[in-house]
Design a binder for these strands. Structure first.
Lengths: 335, 335
DNA sequence: GCAATGTTGTCCCAGTTTTGTCCAGACAAA
DNA sequence: TTTGTCTGGACAAAACTGGGACAACATTGC
């Protein structure tokens, strides 16, 4: 369980003091207590000296309730909702034009463990079949259904990632036409792009610039990262693919981003990559870390080491590094 | 299965406070109450402390009434209509809106104007400012709000189209950085892509393949077309940008599409365009018409004429041609 | 063309409910 | 000691309600 937890769960272990919760949610300490007193919005555990201790789950709920209120909901109405119900309410409110999710009845705790791999593979196969038959509607349906079954990070790692690889592979082998790949890519671009907006923002999130460097035209990896980090309370500044180093640096500085993350996939050995990465590293204030992800990152390991960039090997590794960074930032801030 | 039902039927359970309704419809709280007082436009349920509680059905009605009013309808006339009747009225108006010719039949008071152009320009300026300050959240908010104010086709034509042109222009003039343009483009890609899914599909819609030919990397025009035709009951098979002619043809044949639509923007004089268009025309069964849209279509007028392609000069022209085609197809089918 | 009338969005009022902030005194942590 | 958190309560701002006033504008009748 513990290993899976890291991918998919929102931790329910109580450990955060109220101040951190206030910081992360954008609420005041007083308000959090008042909500608890009046509506039992949260029921935090206590330390042996009666200090409130909140879990990640609580924080996420409070964040969502804050947004729900901004959208015009009344506290009385949203206070008793579960995290999942809140997600639905908030995403419906902030994007009421989105395809109405019809799975309200399905109870899916966010700590749901990832699907059995065979199950997942079946899903992926079904998706590939839908692509092959150009059945967009079915494809979309499968994507939506798959998302219901697991948490977003787990879904990206176990379904979307493998699906992308298989589509690429099948096209190279001639099992899929270019037209099929195009359709699937376009559809996934829309789908993953929309995922980001399932999350909600308070305005206090640290920013992260996400893009791909010059020459890297495939954006889906970067987009997945944007969706992923949204879950953990980052605000992605997403620039799409193929951004020159100068522009990335300018954007990071203008937006006040805490981190930059790049995705490298294809072509893996583009000669511009070393130039661009070096240029980016020198232009950025040394305080802004640069993360490198994507399948082609391994090709540039020496360069990455030399420049002091960070290249976690998995999506989950990236996620953990970022979370550590974010929480470190919190400590510095209050120290 | 149940999915279609849940999508198309609107919940009548009263649960939304008036503030939320105001947010979603773009009306003010005062106005909603005034309409209720004067015309019983809605008759919301009440909480135990007399607070108004609206249903999804109410909200949708208010939204449509707002649009109907913008189209020049009088409140007295539309207030008693059911949701379905309102839908008819609004969609009828939106057709006449842009068919500037024969609007004589419809009663339209003199103050009718879809949206004051100055108003629209203000919105666009605000969006440009949000882009310039890299305020994605604001940008998204403005896009959403704009959409509430008018019907989707009108919105695409009066806001999104001009916005795209101004972003391109500003970037060329150096008023925006490339990073800004990238951010805006990426964001719009997500936004427009999601628009298509506002519509609900029955499975009987005629299909239309939408893409851009080889060398044309800008996909937003094509994506706008996909969103646009969805409104009129087409099912877009969207392939993203840069699709070779052979693949377009294969896709059209495999999916049984009735029409193909291409968007040409940049580079306008790409030498591959004539080759690709010719190739496409010959590979497609003569029965499948090919529409050409986009700012660069004019550069290829002789070619378009020679190949017998169709190039309406505006989005609305395209829309009308397609509707005519669809209805003609329908008649043949039933005759 | 002008006056009377109708339509419509906005604002104000006074009373109620809901919600955010503040305070005081006690205790715990750094 | 200083700072932060705890409980319980007080207070004030914001939001909602019903009612009505009013100005801007369009329509209608002359």
């Amino acid at each position: 369980m513990a290993s899976l937890e890291t991918i998919s769960s929102i931790d329910t272990a109580p450990r955060h003091p109220i101040r951190l919760v206030a910081n992360r949610t954008g609420l005041t300490v007083d308000l959090i207590r008042a909500w608890e007193k009046r509506y039992h919005v949260v029921d935090p555990a206590r330390s042996d000296t009666k200090r409130r201790l909140y879990s990640d789950y609580d924080i996420e709920r409070l964040r969502l309730i804050r947004i729900a209120k901004q959208n015009g909901r009344r506290l009385v109405d949203v206070a008793p909702l579960t995290l999942e119900a809140l997600r639905d309410v908030v995403s419906e409110d902030s994007r009421y034009d989105q395809a109405q999710d019809n799975q309200a009845e399905v109870y899916r705790p966010s700590w749901t463990s990832p699907l059995e791999s065979s199950d997942t593979q079946d899903d992926i196969d079904a998706m590939l079949f839908a692509v092959q038959t150009m059945d967009q509607h079915r494809f979309d349906q499968l994507l939506q259904e798959g998302l219901v079954k697991q948490s977003l990070p787990a879904y990206l790692e176990t379904v979307i990632g493998p699906l992308l690889r298989e589509i690429g592979e099948s096209t190279r082998l001639g099992k899929l036409r270019i037209a099929h790949e195009h359709m699937a890519t376009a559809h996934l671009r829309t789908f993953i792009g929309a995922l980001r907006f399932r999350e909600t923002y308070t305005g206090n999130e640290p920013k992260i610039v996400i893009t791909t460097p010059t020459g890297q035209l495939h954006e889906l990896g970067a987009l997945m990262i944007a969706a992923l980090v949204s879950v953990d309370g980052w605000l992605p500044v997403y620039l799409g693919p193929n951004t020159p180093a100068d522009e990335i640096a300018a954007c990071a500085l203008q937006s006040g981003a805490r981190v930059v993350s790049l995705s490298l996939t294809y072509p893996a050995d583009d000669p511009r990559i070393p130039t661009e990465l070096t240029r980016l590293r020198t232009q950025l204030d040394g305080k802004i870390p640069v993360f490198i992800g994507g399948s082609a990152a391994a090709h540039h390991q020496p360069l990455i080491d030399r420049l002091g960039l960070i290249a976690p090997s998995t999506l989950n590794g990236l996620r953990q590094s970022l979370n550590a960074l974010r929480d470190r930032g919190y400590k510095e801030q209050t120290a």
